[in-house]
């Protein structure tokens, strides 16, 4: 994981003396060209989002004029959108479901990862292979029987199926947390054992406190996954007052957008409100996102 931040470290003295830091050939004149090219591409890639925010503040007739800048700012679009659709309820629903999903999956996956990282038991490698294999299993294959399970428990039509499966851990986070646990210095665990801590004590008082970055990675990844998911809310929720934002947004699009009242200003306002929390989460927890991706990508 240290490699992720490698290039931000100061160059070794020897490299400075020779006038060439690691990666030096990639800098100088080439660096300017690269930065310029990236700046152009960055504008291309972010323009849609900038336009989305701008268009959400435009008078209705201007939405499609191509400019990201409204001639007059219609802040009222956001008042209207809250008045016409239960956006506040959806925001709160999404937040609650995402929080429950993130906390449960992190807690349960950490327990499982602890066993794979620190305990010896017969069949450990085989079982861990099985964990990795389930990551490759397409969600669509288990979707229908899983629905039948929640249906049999009388829980379809509630928000419970959106997060309760996370109580049992998830292969991706088990893998992520195990990789991190394995980097902890063994001396610290030994010290804990000498102090008379059992396995649960080691888990709670040594491993968890030292693994805060990995736990945060797990939390933010699942917050994002749950916040943005459409499939589960589409399958399990029928009543609008239980909707999460993606589920609600689809209804808004169908009702106010195409084929509906053509109120794209309102559709875009709802779109912005669904997107902004994720962008904020990303900026706040950027380093964790990057670390998490780099960890999974380097296996």
């Amino acid at each position: 994981m240290a490699a992720v931040t490698g290039a931000e470290r100061p160059p070794p003295a020897a490299a400075r003396v020779s006038g060439r830091r690691p990666g030096g050939r990639r800098r100088g004149g080439g660096g300017v060209v690269a930065v310029a090219a990236l700046a152009v591409l960055a504008v291309v890639f972010t323009y849609p989002l900038v336009w989305m925010v701008g268009a959400s503040l435009k008078p209705r007739a201007e939405v499609f004029d191509g400019s990201p800048w409204p001639s007059t700012f219609v802040w009222h679009n956001y008042v209207t959108v809250f008045r016409e659709i239960p956006l506040l309820t959806w925001l709160l629903n999404t937040g609650a479901v995402a929080a429950a999903a993130a906390v449960t999956v992190t807690a349960s996956s950490a327990l499982v990862a602890f066993a794979f990282a620190f305990l010896r038991f017969p069949g450990r490698e085989l079982l861990f292979g099985l964990v990795l294999a389930t990551m490759m299993l397409p969600a669509a294959v288990t979707l229908i029987p899983t629905y039948a399970i929640w249906e049999a428990m009388g829980l379809t039509g509630t928000q419970v199926p959106l997060w309760a499966g996370n109580l049992f851990g998830s292969a991706f986070y088990v893998f992520l947390l195990r990789q991190f646990f394995l980097t902890l210095p063994p001396e610290l665990l030994d010290a804990g054992r000498v102090d008379g801590l059992g396995h649960l004590g080691l888990f709670r008082h040594v491993v968890l406190p030292l693994s805060r970055p990995a736990l945060v990675i797990s939390l933010v990844f699942e917050l994002r996954a749950s916040w943005t998911d459409l499939l589960k809310p589409l399958v399990y929720l029928q009543e609008p007052h239980l909707f999460t934002l993606p589920r609600g947004l689809k209804v808004v699009l169908d009702r106010f957008g195409q084929g509906g009242e053509m109120r794209w200003d309102l559709v875009l306002a709802a779109n912005v409100l669904a997107t902004v929390p994720m962008v904020l989460l990303f900026f706040a927890a950027q380093r964790y996102f990057v670390q998490g991706i780099a960890t999974t990508g380097s296996r």
Binding site: L230, L245, L249, A274
Partner: peptide, 10 residues
């Protein structure tokens, strides 16, 4: 990376 955190519905 910002587009990757935008919800798929959005």
């Amino acid at each position: 990376y910002v587009p990757a955190v935008t919800p798929p519905v959005a």
